Structures are given as C-alpha cells and as structure tokens.
Amino acid sequence: MSMKKKTYEEVIKESPVTYELYANMVDDGNRYEISDGVLELMSPSPTPTHQSVSQELLFTLNASCRNEFIIYSAPIDVILSDTEVRQPDLVMIHRSRMSIISNRGINGAPDLVVEVTSEHSRRRDKVMKRIVYAKYGVQEYWIVDLSNFTLEQYVLDGNRYELTEMYAEDDTISSKTATCASFTMNEIVQSLPVHPDV
C-alpha cells in the first residue's frame, strides 16, 4: 500500500515522526533529520568553505582508506532507529560491515562519522549529535570546527564519548578506528580552492 506524500507542515504534526513518514515526504529541496521522533530542518545551506572542507576530507580519506572503508558524503540518511535519522557530512563504514548499506541509506551505526560544524550547527554537532552518535554505537566521531580549523576526535568509551585529541595546524591526525587516515588540518586548509576568511 503506497502512502500519500506529505509536506513538511503535515509531517511535523505527527508524533513521533518515523523514517517511513520522512522517506515519503514531498521533496521541497530542503534537508531534514529526525531527532528522537521530531523532524528538524537543517538550515541554512552549508557555506562554500563548509562544502570545500567536506570535499577535501572526502578526497583525502578516499585516497588512503578506500580499500578498507566505504566513505559517503552528505546527503545520505544514517538510520540509527525508526525515530532517529541523521545526515552527517561524512560517514565511514568498514568493508566488513557493508551489510548495513542499503538503497534507503545506512541502516545502523557507521564506524566513523564526521560533522563539519559552523556557527549555525555548533550546538547541534557538539552537544546533541555527540550524545546521539554515542547512544547508537558510532565508534568514533570527528567534529571539524570551521571557526579555528581544528578537528576534535571523540572515541566511544562504553556508551559515551571521550575527547581523545584535538588536532590543529600541522598535528597529524590518526585514528584507531580508521588507522588508514593520516593528514593535517593545514593540508586540508591549503587545498581549499578559496582561502577562508576566519
């Protein structure tokens, strides 16, 4: 039985919002996530610096990690539960866990998630998403902060994250989850097509 497509205004009245409702929404050109059964509009659109940093990270990680990991960039649905659907900037899934990849998205926790944060998403990325990704078992979470071009590395310890390292400038980034990753934030910034105004 096919479901009638609903608009954003119709879906937000539902409680809780489920993946099925979300997946059958009218495409209005916006990006949404489901946070604990609540539909959230992701706005405003990412800046050129955000997109460039995300693309450079994707390129860098693909160059060193593609033999071990499948790497996706946003938008892609990470379906953590029926009422928790996120769209991280980058996700890494070890090839031994490819069974969580389907035509609808990623069904479960990726091995590593990257969020490139901005002034509009900082609280969401550093507080709310950190709690959610830990709850659902994402082994490692990176937050790239565009205000100072740092990378905060969180590693799952039980059911919560520990900040294990903060990388800046020429610090070489390394990961126990993705041992193939090795780069510096300066390398990312120097590769940007337009130098960012910080």
Score class of each variant (00 low, 15 high):
R95I: 04
T83A: 10
I79P: 07
P110Q: 02
T83N: 12
V132F: 07
V78N: 08
M98I: 13
S121E: 06
V127R: 12
E84R: 15
D82T: 02
N103A: 08
N107T: 04
V127W: 13
R97Y: 10
Y141M: 07
V113I: 09
D111Y: 14
R104F: 09
S121Y: 11
T117C: 02
S96L: 12
I100K: 10
S96F: 10
R86S: 10
R95N: 09
Y133G: 04
S96N: 12
L90E: 07
D82C: 07
N107G: 09
R124S: 13
K129S: 05
Q139L: 15
Q139W: 12
R123W: 15
G137H: 13
P110E: 01
K129C: 02
D125P: 02
I101K: 12
D125T: 00
N103L: 05
I101A: 00
M98C: 12
H94K: 13
V116F: 06
I106H: 10
H94M: 13
N103Y: 11
I100E: 08
D111F: 12
K135Q: 12
M128V: 12
D82M: 02
V78E: 01
R130A: 05
V78D: 04
W142Q: 06
M92D: 10
I100H: 10
R122I: 10
T83K: 15
E84M: 14
D82V: 03
G137C: 06
M128W: 13
V85K: 15
K126G: 01
V113C: 04
I143H: 07
P110M: 08
Y133S: 00
E119T: 14
V78H: 07
M128R: 14
S81K: 08
V78S: 05
I101M: 06
R130L: 03
V91M: 14
M92G: 11
P88G: 00
S102W: 11
Y141W: 08
I131N: 11
L112K: 11
Y133E: 06
M128P: 11
R124Y: 14
S118G: 02
P110F: 05
H94R: 11
E115T: 02
R123L: 15
D89R: 04
M128I: 15
Q87M: 13
N107A: 11
E119D: 14
R97G: 09
R95L: 05
G105V: 02
V78M: 03
D125A: 01
G108Q: 05
K135D: 12
V138D: 05
I106V: 05
R97E: 01
K126Q: 04
E84N: 15
A109C: 11
I93Y: 04
H94G: 15
I143L: 05
S118C: 01
R95M: 06
R122Q: 10
M128K: 14
R104I: 00
Y136P: 05
S81C: 04
S81N: 12
D82S: 05
L112F: 07
R123G: 14
K129A: 01
I93M: 01
R86C: 08
K129V: 03
V138K: 03
E84I: 14
M128E: 14
S121G: 03
S81D: 13
D89C: 03
N107C: 07
E140T: 01
K129E: 01
R130Q: 08
R123Y: 15
V116Y: 04
L90I: 09
E119I: 13
G105M: 02
H94P: 12
S102V: 03
E115W: 00
I143P: 10
V114Y: 12
S121K: 09
M98L: 14
R123C: 06
G105E: 04
R130E: 02
N107H: 09
M98S: 14
I143Q: 03
